[in-house]
Computed example of a mutant assay.
Amino acid sequence: MSSISKARFNRALFWLSLLIASTIAVFPVYWMVITSLQTTEEVFAFPPNFLPDIKIENYLSVLTETDLPLWMRNSLVVSLSSTALALLVGTPAAFALSRLRYRGRAVFSLLILTTQMIPTLVLIIPLFQIFVQLGIRDSLLGLVLGNFAFTLPVVVWMMKSMLDGVPQEIEQAARVDGASWFQIMLYITGPLVLPGLAATTIYAFLDAWDEYMLARTTITSPENWVASIGISSFVGQYLTPLNIVMAASVLFSLPPIILFLLIQRQFVAGLSAGAVKG
């Protein structure tokens, strides 16, 4: 086999492998969407129909006959609030770890890293007791604070890795010109790590949006349920309406997709933002 034929064969093999991998990754999402468009009889029909007629009755039923809009609103409130709080606290903390030199800095960094070694389930009972004592057990405020506590250490470390990739000479020049550390972080370093900030925002939002165990443990009132709990309530003891569950799941997937599409360029750039030092 000539070198040209071998190169073409390798290229064809690469694209074939990529097509197979993409199909495996996308098929569950496709199956969720087509199931949400079918009736109960069509869902259990054999052979399955991979190209069903478009019917929006399931979506109308979910939006009008269930409390999914309320649960989605609660999820948005919790996710956006905990994300904003984690970024507001975590970014200055990451800047301090990356730039400032003070006694106990290494120990403090190690403590932040250690928190990620503790399973989340271990922390739920202590958080539950704290929420009871504070009177925020069955409230969205408790979920915001809980998700903030879970997300903050990762936000700090992600932003620290981004900040480590920014040359300190730029900041030193600003210090010579009389800029404060806050001004440097806000006007000089901040725009440079914007792609990393976008990636961190995506992570923090998804972490709060998909959270289930803390919400299931601390929230009892249906009006305070988040969407992850609400969708799980559709599962019955003897019957589960799969088409309704899939319609709700499609709607539940839309906010993260929309957020990703809005900041996808910054997110892709932020994936390698801390890999190489400047």
Rank of each mutant, 00 (worst) to 15 (best):
L88G: 01
S98M: 04
S75A: 09
S82G: 04
F108D: 04
L80A: 02
P69T: 14
P119C: 05
L97Q: 06
L88I: 09
I118H: 09
T115V: 13
A106V: 13
S81Y: 00
R99H: 04
S79E: 00
S75C: 06
T64Y: 11
A96H: 07
T115A: 11
T91V: 14
R105F: 08
A84I: 15
G104R: 09
L68D: 08
S82I: 01
T83H: 00
L80E: 02
S79W: 03
A86C: 12
Y102R: 02
Q116M: 15
L87F: 01
R101P: 14
V89Q: 05
R101N: 12
T64E: 08
S61H: 15
L63H: 13
V89L: 13
I112G: 04
S98D: 10
A84R: 07
S109A: 12
Y102M: 02
P119F: 11
M117G: 13
V62W: 02
S79V: 05
M117I: 06
P92E: 07
M72R: 07
L110I: 14
L100Y: 08
T91E: 07
F108G: 09
L70V: 15
M117R: 09
T91F: 14
S109Q: 13
L85A: 02
M117S: 15
A84Q: 06
T83R: 01
L85H: 01
W71K: 01
L68A: 11
A84N: 08
S109I: 11
L97S: 05
R103K: 15
V78H: 02
D67F: 15
Y102C: 03
R101G: 13
L111C: 14
A86M: 09
T83W: 00
T115I: 12
V62F: 07
E65A: 13
T66S: 12
S81P: 05
L85F: 03
L80M: 03
